[in-house]
Simulated scan of single mutants.
Amino acid sequence: MAALLLYLTRHSYLHKGQSWELIVVVPVVYTLFISLGVLGPSEVEVSSICEERKMNVAHGLAWSFYVGYLQLVLPSLGKSIDSFRASHRNSFWGQGPQKLLILIPLNTNISHKLEDEDNYIQFYDSLPNSQLDRAGIQGRVYKHSVYRVQDENGKAHDCAVEYATPLLTLYRMSQDRRAGFGESERRQQVLLFYRTLQDILEQSQECRNRYRLILLKDEHQDDPHFLSKTILKHLEQQNKEEFCVNPAAPQQETKNPVQMGDWHNPEEISREPTLMISLERPQPLRGPVEDTDIHYRAT
């Protein structure tokens, strides 16, 4: 671009000794073209960059996890939890919104049994199985495990929690030289997987309010109860998200009646709103009357 501008303006600039203005003109024009997308990378270049950085791996795993698993099991999660609570009277399941807790560790350190990582977590039972005909498999079984998590005071809490299974694929790929990415690239893949899956689930009507993604960082790996504390923290936040919308009784609403001057009427506050229709004929509109002695009464 500098050479082209120099060639086109050589008669005007070089004659007057103003060729230094190209130093200002070229960056300004280049920045303008970049902002307008004229000099942006082509589709082939974008595909090449994504392939070199292995960005398509996490993106594909997130979509596969959603389409092949979460979209199938999350819509029926509420019924499974209700059936479980009805058959387990001794369960310590909270009263808040019941969701599937999905653990996503940055280091892809996944244990097949959560009790192996934290002795405050114990396997309790499994939710009722869901059976679907999938890809030629008749009655394919999908199941969720219920774990009992104990806090520091010894109080138990039940919840459905599991790891995101595609992270096992990322871990195996990082151990294979043919995959072409190491530990640092694997962490980037986990973050990309988390963001992509979060964006997919937030736009899914079937899975809304039925899941909770928990990103596990590495700062507290020396704490033997880090996993149980993290799960309990999210359960506490989950219970705070529950809002009771049950209408209160009229007697309860009239305890603090609204007062305006010397007038108050509790019955007007507790009464259900009704549609009032007047049977009188409409009256013609009257113009403004300048008379301060007239008192208007409410009809």
Rank of each mutant, 00 (worst) to 15 (best):
A3P: 01
Y7M: 11
L8H: 15
R10K: 15
H11F: 08
V24H: 02
V26L: 11
V26M: 10
T31W: 01
T31Y: 03
F33H: 05
I34M: 08
G40V: 08
G40M: 05
S42I: 00
E43P: 01
V44R: 13
S48T: 06
E51A: 13
R53T: 03
M55T: 10
N56S: 13
N56W: 03
G60C: 08
L61V: 06
W63K: 09
F65M: 06
F65C: 10
F65A: 07
V67P: 00
G68K: 10
Y69M: 10
Y69E: 15
Y69G: 01
L70N: 04
L72Q: 10
S80W: 00
I81F: 11
A86T: 03
H88N: 14
S91G: 08
W93C: 04
Q95A: 14
Q95K: 02
Q98N: 14
I104M: 02
P105C: 12
L106W: 01
T108K: 00
I110M: 14
S111I: 00
S111P: 01
L114F: 03
D118M: 04
Y120F: 13
I121W: 02
I121M: 02
Y124I: 03
L127D: 04
Q131W: 03
L132A: 07
D133P: 00
D133A: 03
D133W: 03
A135V: 01
G136R: 05
G136P: 07
G139F: 07
Q150G: 01
N153R: 04
K155E: 15
C159I: 14
A160F: 04
V161K: 05
A164I: 12
T165H: 14
L167H: 07
L170Y: 04
R172G: 08
E183R: 09
R186N: 12
R187V: 14
Q188R: 11
L191S: 13
F193S: 08
R195K: 12
L197S: 10
E202W: 02
S204N: 07
C207R: 06
R212Q: 11
R212G: 01
R212P: 00
I214F: 00
D218F: 04
E219M: 08
Q221I: 05
D223M: 05
H225I: 09
L227I: 09
S228N: 09
I231P: 02
I231V: 15
K233Y: 11
Q237Y: 08
N239F: 02
V245Q: 15
N246A: 15
N246Q: 15
P247Y: 04
P247A: 06
A248H: 11
Q251F: 10
Q251H: 13
T254L: 13
T254F: 07
V258T: 09
V258Y: 06
G261L: 03
W263S: 10
N265F: 07
E268L: 11
E272L: 05
I277D: 00
I277K: 13
L279M: 13
E280I: 01
G287C: 09
P288F: 02
E290N: 11
T292K: 11
H295W: 09
H295F: 12
Y296P: 00
R297C: 10
T299G: 15
